[in-house]
């Protein structure tokens, strides 16, 4: 009504409304915020692509020339003939160790803390400390592994071996596996548990058949991310005694001898001087090893996404 009153100086109500509704097109703070957000995204993408670009420039011609022999041969002093087989083997054993040790242990501990432990002060203390453990720098875990797995338990692991390294990295990712699993279990609706109890399932049957399957996508995401983390860590391996792939040192593909892993080769090869006599430099082999490590990690992440989507489809019923 107010808009339709006269005293509009000859303009109709429609003119006034139009003037009001089209007054200002500019939302300056909003625009600035949008620019800032967009810049952040662009910077991130730029960094990522620069990284991948530089690696690929060094790696692609090298990999084309060397082909499969770079994968199957062992390390040595001449980039024209060396390979990363011992590194692949070491990383494989480490990944296996994480899957066999950290996954079941971490998930089981998470189930206990979420489903069974009464909310006492002790439980809270344990939970806080797990969070703290997840924040401990990797190199400190290296010291732990060196002391315990390569030292005290040297009789079992054989000292500075790939087994000691696998155990160290399993312990390193254990808190991550636990935290993500606990969060996934906590997100399971109470209704699912009630439903299990309601038809006469015991607490364990309910957890096994319903809680874990509902939490599976979340647990899976956490475990695969932690696997990728373990495959990429170099610092604890240095402390535990992995060889850096330098000149003349020849790790074996054995469980109880000298060993190396992909991040160690990248680290070692990156520090080597160039040699004009060779066709290829260590910088090329380091880049090529990086590409292979990245491909491995991407493969695991992709597998995790596929599995997660499959679980989530059954969850939502679409």
């Amino acid at each position: 009504m107010a808009l339709a009153t006269p005293a509009l100086g000859g303009r109709t109500a429609g003119d006034v409304v139009r003037a009001n509704l089209t007054k200002s097109q500019r939302d300056v703070p909003g625009l600035l915020a949008l620019i800032a957000l967009l810049t952040s995204v662009l910077v991130t993408i730029l960094v990522l692509f620069t990284l991948i670009g530089t690696i690929l420039v060094d790696a692609v011609p090298f990999l084309r020339d060397r082909g499969g022999s770079f994968v199957t041969r062992t390390i040595g002093s001449n980039p024209d003939v060396i390979g990363l087989w011992p590194g692949l083997y070491g990383s494989f054993i480490i990944g296996l160790g994480v899957i066999v040790i950290a996954f079941p242990l971490g998930i089981a501990a998470a189930v206990y803390l979420e489903e069974y432990a009464k909310p006492t002060r002790f439980t809270r203390f344990v939970q806080i400390n797990i969070r703290n453990l997840a924040g401990v720098p990797a190199v400190v875990y290296g010291v732990l592994g060196f002391t315990i797995f390569a030292g005290w338990l040297g009789g079992l692991t054989g000292g500075k071996t790939v087994i000691a390294a696998a155990l160290t990295l399993a312990v390193l990712v254990l808190p991550i596996v636990m935290i993500t699993s606990m969060e996934a279990i906590r997100a399971v609706p109470q209704g699912i548990r009630d439903a299990g109890y309601g038809v006469g399932a015991s607490r364990w049957e309910t957890i096994r058949d319903h809680v874990l399957s509902y939490a599976a996508p979340g647990i899976l995401t956490g475990t695969v991310l932690s696997l990728a983390r373990a495959l990429g860590e170099a610092a604890p391996l240095i402390v535990v005694g992995a060889l850096a792939g330098g000149v003349g040192l020849l790790p074996e593909t054995s469980l109880d001898g000298k060993f190396t892993a992909l991040p160690m080769l990248i680290y070692g090869w990156s520090g080597q001087p160039t040699d004009a006599d060779n066709r290829w430099q260590f910088s090329n082999s380091a880049a090529a090893a990086s590409v292979i490590l990245l491909a491995l990690v991407l493969f695991f992440n992709f597998a995790a996404i596929l599995l997660r989507n499959r679980y989530e489809r059954t969850r939502t019923g679409s």
Binding site: P189, G191, I192, G198, V199, A201, S213, T314, G317
Partner: peptide, 24 residues
């Protein structure tokens, strides 16, 4: 047995929802 306020089928097939109790 119990039926709850919010329908809470298991995130499984219709068949498995009903068969779960007899199975365990």
């Amino acid at each position: 047995g119990m039926v709850f306020q919010k329908p809470n089928p298991f995130p499984k097939s219709i068949y498995d929802n009903v068969a779960y109790g007899p199975r365990i």
